[in-house]
Every structure is written in C-alpha cells, then in structure tokens.
Amino acid sequence: MKKIVIFIWLFIGGISVFAQDRPEDFHVRVIKNDGTVFEGYNETRFTNYLRPYITAVSISNEFAGKSIKYNGNEVKRIEFTGETQDSLPMIFEAVIPQTKLPNLFNKNPKPYKEPVFLRLIYEGENVRGYAMPYTDHTMIPGRRTILYTWRYFYLTKDSDIAVAYWDDTDGTIPKMEKVMKFYFREFPELQQLVDRKEITPEMFRENPAIVLPIMDRTFQSSEK
C-alpha cells in the first residue's frame, strides 16, 4: 500500500469541517472488522478535547437521520469522503493505544481497555502513525495552565498496542535530544540520526510525524 504521510502542522486545524453542517462533510465509508463495507453519515466529533479517546461512533443512513452506534470491536476504519481543509485524507482507525507517555519509571504504560478511534497520519509497510486530541494540564504555584494539543503514537506490525511517543507542548524541555532518544529506543538507527543532528529537536517539534517513515524503513521485527 502506498505510504501516506500527513504533516502535522498542516492538519492540526484540518478537522474543523464539523463547524459547517454540510452533509458531505459528515459522509463516511465504514469498514467493519468482518470485512463488511458500507457508507453513511457520522455524528461523532473526533476532536472533542474533553473526551478525546473516542471508543464508539454513531452512523446513520441519512444525514441527521436515526443512527446506530458501533464500537472499535465492530468497526476498524472510518474514512471521510469529503474534502478536508488540508486536502489530505481524514481516516480514523480503531486501535488500542497506551494511556500515557512512557517514562523512565514506566516504560510500558498500560493501554486503554478497548479500541480508540485515532486519526491515521502515516501508513507504511511496518509502522503506522496516529494522533489524537490531548489536554495537557500544567500545575505551577498559583496557576493551572490547560493546553489543547495532540498526542502521537506509532504501531508496529508485530504489536497490538500503539506506543505513545510524543505530546505537543509549548514549553521548554531540558535535554530534549536525550528525551527523543528515549522515545525512539526501539529504533537504534533513528537514535543515531539524533546523535548526528540529522533529526534535531526543532525539526521533531515542528513535525512529530517526520520520524514515522524512518521507523518504518528501519523497523526490525521482534518475531523469531
């Protein structure tokens, strides 16, 4: 399958089609886990920051008609057929992602208990990339800051769990290169690119999807 790379800085505002009640903006092609394919109209707002992990979607035969709810165990992929503001495909897939970013004390955070619909941002032979809305709460003395941002994941072909590898943030991150290498620990060649400054913190923060094609190209399966 042809790889699809969606540059994040292009699509951050690209899911705002729901602000307009045009039927074509809600029209979707639905692929179920049993291989069944049908078309309809979606009612779910996938960019709901207050509830970013969408586990079920409502699909109706007619725009604003009576809908049927499907969860991620029934539906594996939803493709919006209308044009988007960024002219790039808007596709959501049901996957089981980690609930938080890995850290030194918890390198394998627990996953969600059920599949979550994430936006597909990269589709390769070995690795797929996803993003979902994320609300970052930062607490400092006397102030609480809420940032509406994005969390990014990669899913390798030999895994059932999508690994969280980055949260967009406006703040300064000390020892950013070290942090990047930790998130890329499954991909030694990518770590080497960081050491050689061929992938810099500035490049990565501007476009977190930049590493996905490299992950795909250098992926080594753990299967024997």
Score class of each variant (00 low, 15 high):
1 M>D: 13
3 K>A: 14
6 I>P: 04
7 F>L: 14
7 F>V: 09
9 W>N: 14
11 F>Q: 12
12 I>K: 13
12 I>Q: 11
13 G>D: 11
15 I>T: 15
18 F>A: 08
20 Q>F: 12
20 Q>R: 11
27 H>G: 02
29 R>L: 14
30 V>W: 03
31 I>Y: 15
32 K>V: 02
33 N>E: 10
33 N>P: 00
36 T>Y: 04
39 E>Q: 07
46 F>N: 07
48 N>P: 00
55 T>L: 00
56 A>I: 05
58 S>I: 05
60 S>V: 05
60 S>F: 02
61 N>S: 11
61 N>V: 06
62 E>F: 00
67 S>Y: 11
68 I>T: 13
69 K>E: 15
71 N>A: 07
75 V>A: 06
83 E>M: 07
89 P>R: 03
90 M>I: 03
95 V>P: 02
95 V>S: 07
100 K>V: 03
102 P>V: 06
103 N>S: 08
104 L>S: 01
104 L>F: 14
104 L>T: 10
105 F>K: 08
105 F>C: 00
107 K>A: 13
108 N>A: 11
109 P>S: 06
109 P>A: 09
110 K>N: 10
111 P>E: 03
112 Y>A: 08
113 K>N: 15
115 P>V: 02
116 V>C: 05
116 V>M: 02
121 I>L: 07
121 I>H: 03
124 G>D: 06
125 E>A: 08
126 N>W: 03
137 H>W: 13
138 T>A: 09
140 I>A: 05
141 P>G: 04
145 T>R: 11
148 Y>G: 03
151 R>E: 12
153 F>K: 00
154 Y>P: 00
154 Y>S: 01
159 S>G: 04
161 I>G: 04
162 A>I: 02
167 D>Q: 12
168 D>I: 09
169 T>W: 07
172 T>N: 12
175 K>F: 15
176 M>W: 07
176 M>L: 10
179 V>E: 11
180 M>C: 08
183 Y>S: 12
184 F>Q: 04
189 E>A: 01
191 Q>T: 01
191 Q>Y: 02
191 Q>G: 03
192 Q>C: 00
192 Q>T: 05
194 V>A: 11
195 D>E: 11
198 E>W: 04
201 P>W: 13
201 P>V: 14
202 E>W: 05
206 E>K: 13
210 I>H: 06
212 L>P: 09
212 L>N: 13
213 P>T: 09
213 P>I: 09
215 M>E: 05
216 D>W: 08
219 F>H: 09
224 K>V: 13
